[in-house]
């Protein structure tokens, strides 16, 4: 890790330490951990918007507490996932600040889901794409 990465990391760790449910952020008790790529992107979006001055970190903290509370009150209609609540918190906060319309997110998501990433690419390739034969 370079010194620059270390500094960026410290700044982010500082933000993360202020959030509720540290056990979800650090499942093994020490290091921050993510399970999927989208969790990391959702994390990065919330920090980037904060760093751009769109909201104070305490406001994100409150939005996250609010999203988790709503999930708890809904009594298990969906499995608890920290970064799912995180995403909800981010959307609700941006909407409350007039920066985003949640209906637009719904529509854009539908577009993403219906646009093939690459039509040929959804095919399974069952043979090697290249073979370099033995020479000896």
């Amino acid at each position: 890790m370079t010194a620059q990465d270390g500094t960026a990391r410290q700044a982010v760790e500082h933000l993360l330490l202020e959030l509720p449910h540290q056990e979800a952020i650090r499942p093994d008790g020490t290091d921050v951990s993510f399970q999927t790529a989208w969790e990391i992107r959702a994390f990065a979006l919330a920090v980037a918007a904060h760093q751009n001055g769109e909201y104070d970190w305490t406001q994100f903290q409150e939005a996250l507490v609010g999203a988790i509370t709503r999930w708890e009150q809904a009594q298990g209609t969906t499995p608890y996932r920290y970064y799912d609540r995180w995403l909800e918190a981010l959307e609700s906060l941006l909407a409350a600040r007039g920066l985003l319309d949640v209906a637009d997110v719904e529509e854009r998501t539908r577009v993403v889901l219906t646009t093939p990433r690459d039509t040929g690419h959804h095919r399974a390739h069952r043979e090697p794409v290249a073979v370099d034969a033995a020479r000896a």
Binding site: T36, A37, W38, R41, A42, L45, A63, G66, A67, R70, W71, A74, T77, T78, P79, D84, R85, L87, E88, E91, S92, L93, A95, A96, V102, V105, E106, R108, T109, V111, V112, L113
Partner: peptide, 21 residues
Amino acid sequence: ITPSPTVTPRSEEQIAARVKA
């Protein structure tokens, strides 16, 4: 703060697409 409609279960693919959007 308006709750977003996330009380219905979403698949990994749906969530990933939403983050991308």
